[in-house]
Structures are given as C-alpha cells and as structure tokens.
Design a binder for these strands. Structure first.
Lengths: 114, 114
DNA sequence: CAGTATCCCATATGATACTG
DNA sequence: CAGTATCATATGGGATACTG
C-alpha cells in the first residue's frame, strides 16, 4: 500500500479502518521516537540535551523525528529569541496523554525481553 | 546503527539500554503486526482467514510478520496433519499479556486521529 | 546553538509466479 | 491450503560537511 503524500506525518489515508492501533504505533514508533518521548516525559529539554543524551543518534535523524512528532502534535517546539539560539522541546497536552501508554510499553518490554 | 544479525527478531543487542519501550514497539510495530494482533486478540484464526481479512497484505508479508511474532513468542502456530493442510494462529500467553496494551493503543488512536 | 544539505546504502515492502 | 522463490522498488536511516 503506497502512501499518498511524501511525508510520514499522519492522516486518515494512512490508517487501516479496523483500528486506531496503527495510528498510535506510527505516531510513537519511529527509530528514535521512543528515546525522545521517554526523555521528554521527564520534562522539557533543549535540542543539545536531547542530542547528547541519545547515544548514536545523528542530528539529521533527531531533527526528522522531532519534526514529525511536532507535526503530529505530540511535542511543542519553543524557540527563544536569543543569541546564541535556544530551542526547547516538551510534550504537548496530546503527548502527555500518552504517558500511561509509554509506561506500560516500557514495563512490558522490561518484563518480557530476554 | 547497523543491526548485528540478519533478521528483525528481537535480542538484547537491538535495545537501547534506557528503556523497554523500544523492545515492545519492535515486537508489535511491524507494518502488518497490528492488523494481525488485533484479529488474533479476538481468537484463533486460520492462515487464509487472516489473509482474506487483512486488506492489501501480500502472502509474503503476512508470512514474514507471522514468523517474526512466532519467533518473538507472541503467537503460536498450530499445524494440523490433514489434507488439505490446515494451520491456525493464536496468541501465546506472552501475546495475551499484551492485550491491555493493544486496547489502550487502539483507544488512544481512535481518540486522537484527525 | 541548532540546525540543513548531500550523498549513499541497507532494509522493508511490494508484485508476481510457482509448489508441497 | 498454506505457503516459497525471485525480482524490483520505496523508504528509512547513516556519514559527512556546511550554515544562519
């Protein structure tokens, strides 16, 4: 099934009609999204803090995944008009509503990985 | 970050050490795994029933995703020694323990998709 | 500091045909 | 019926260099 537009951002056309599971998994399931969400669930962070705390992530991928989650409304990007520039990321209200799910995903993983 | 082996089956090396979230998401996050899990959560199904109920899936992808979930211990594959052949798939105990999570993923998706 | 821009490759997925 | 095999393509992701 081909995607109808060029981005990975979510819209109705991407979804199987039978359930919202795929929607949620696409929203949080990118290569670096769990690492990002896990950190932001603990509080607001600067771009450089995210980059430095996530091992092996490239700036390219970090920005791509942040932009997708911003478009999907999971996180807020806050730009301060300062020199040098400062950008902070935080969970939005929508993102915050995911926290119990992130917890249960983490718990299940911790219990069931070999 | 390159994978150390050729399959997508889970092992310790695939995991970020900071959380089990990635483990769970890899286990259930394949292209067709949500559709499969959603159906098996409602009960045992034959291969052909899965194939016919999941729109647009190819046999190749269906089998690949089933095999991965079988390797990861989420589902059982039951082969009956009959002619014509009959194969049924069902959630394992481990797979069943995911059901509350699948539910919450689905609920969140239904509420938050546009 | 917080990003972009290119280039490149591995992997995931798809199309189609065939089979025990 | 329940798959395999083969080939082709799309996409995700990495390396590296550059910039407002």
């Amino acid at each position: 099934m081909r995607k109808e537009n060029s981005t990975n951002t979510l819209n109705k056309q991407h979804l199987e009609k039978d359930c919202g599971m795929s929607y949620t998994l696409t929203a949080i399931g990118g290569r670096w999204k769990p690492a990002i969400l896990w950190r932001l669930a603990r509080g607001k962070m600067r771009y450089s803090e995210l980059r430095d705390s996530i091992a092996n992530v490239t700036e390219r991928m970090l920005v791509l995944q942040l932009r997708e989650m911003e478009k999907d409304g999971l996180i807020n990007r806050i730009v301060y008009a300062e020199v040098p520039p400062r950008v902070e990321y935080e969970l939005s209200a929508k993102g915050n509503s995911l926290k119990p799910i992130l917890e249960s995903l983490s718990d299940w993983g911790d219990k069931n990985r070999i």
